[in-house]
């Protein structure tokens, strides 16, 4: 789809946002009764559900058990109705396996796994509608679900996508912008210490613009953190009120 302008002359993108504006984030914790922790997040039109079980006994092969820390098991799945054309395989193809691996790595670095040796923590993520920034939304949803389950974390993990086109850095890329072959950065970071847990980049980007893009990514993740933090505090105070404690 060449020829579609990602950023117009007035500085607006196809969906009317400014380059440094995030899409609207709406989230909810504790959506499922069975799971230990669950969350639902909407970033613009991207809708993702996450559930967490654990720490529980290792299921399947005993050989996976690690003698000094917990084993983190992730599953990333995209519903067949989530994309424009029906997706034949919800999971198991290369891209999904890669996303699963990245999530596992991200959360293994953030969860304090040394507290639960020889156990397993499951994180299941399902994308209901994919409109760009799928992985970032999944990481955010999983963070909320982990907090809901009460599993100790080093910090929130906030993820965001940043793109660079025509000398302009754009934040939170949607599907239309993704298909235009722009340089795309997906970052997941711990906002307080500004450390990146995961970093992925595709397409071409000249080195001179790298610091600009990374600064923008840091700022975007911090913005996401504010939203998530607000949501968690609201949820916690609501639950405590209902339980009769103030």
């Amino acid at each position: 789809m060449a020829g579609v302008e990602v950023v117009s002359e007035q500085g607006f993108r196809t969906d009317g946002r400014k380059p440094n504006e995030l899409r609207r984030i709406r989230c909810k914790q504790g959506v499922f009764s069975h799971a230990d922790g669950s969350a639902y997040i909407e970033q613009g039109n991207t809708k993702v559900l996450a559930t967490v079980y654990g720490p529980h006994e290792i299921r399947g092969s005993r050989s996976k058990a690690l003698h000094d820390r917990a084993y983190v098991n992730c599953q990333f799945s995209m519903a067949t109705f989530s994309t424009g054309e029906r997706k034949q395989r919800p999971r198991g193809d290369r891209k999904s396996t890669e996303m699963t691996m990245h999530m596992k790595q991200t959360f293994e670095a953030t969860i304090l796994t040394q507290l639960y040796p020889r156990s397993q923590i499951d994180i299941f993520v399902e994308v209901l509608q994919a409109d760009g920034g799928n992985f970032a939304a999944c990481v955010n949803a999983a963070t909320l679900a982990l907090i809901d389950a009460g599993i100790p974390l080093k910090d929130y993990v906030c993820a965001c996508t940043v793109g660079f086109v025509d000398d302009v850095t754009i934040v939170d890329i949607n599907h239309l912008e993704e298909t235009n072959h722009i340089a795309e950065f997906t970052v997941a970071m711990l906002p307080k210490s500004e450390q990146f847990v995961m970093l992925e980049m595709s397409s071409r980007l000249h080195l001179d613009h790298l610091s600009k893009v990374m600064d923008m990514a840091t700022k975007a993740c911090k913005d996401v953190h504010l939203v998530l933090d607000r949501a968690v505090r609201d949820h916690v105070s609501e639950v405590w009120q209902q339980l009769g404690n103030t």
Binding site: A109, A183, Q195, M201, R204, L205, L207, S211
Partner: peptide, 18 residues
């Protein structure tokens, strides 16, 4: 060679700074 970044990939359980 022209100093264009084509791919970045971080793996493993570690945290990196900018």
């Amino acid at each position: 060679k022209h100093r264009e970044l084509c791919m970045l990939h971080v793996s493993g359980k570690m945290l990196v700074l900018q």
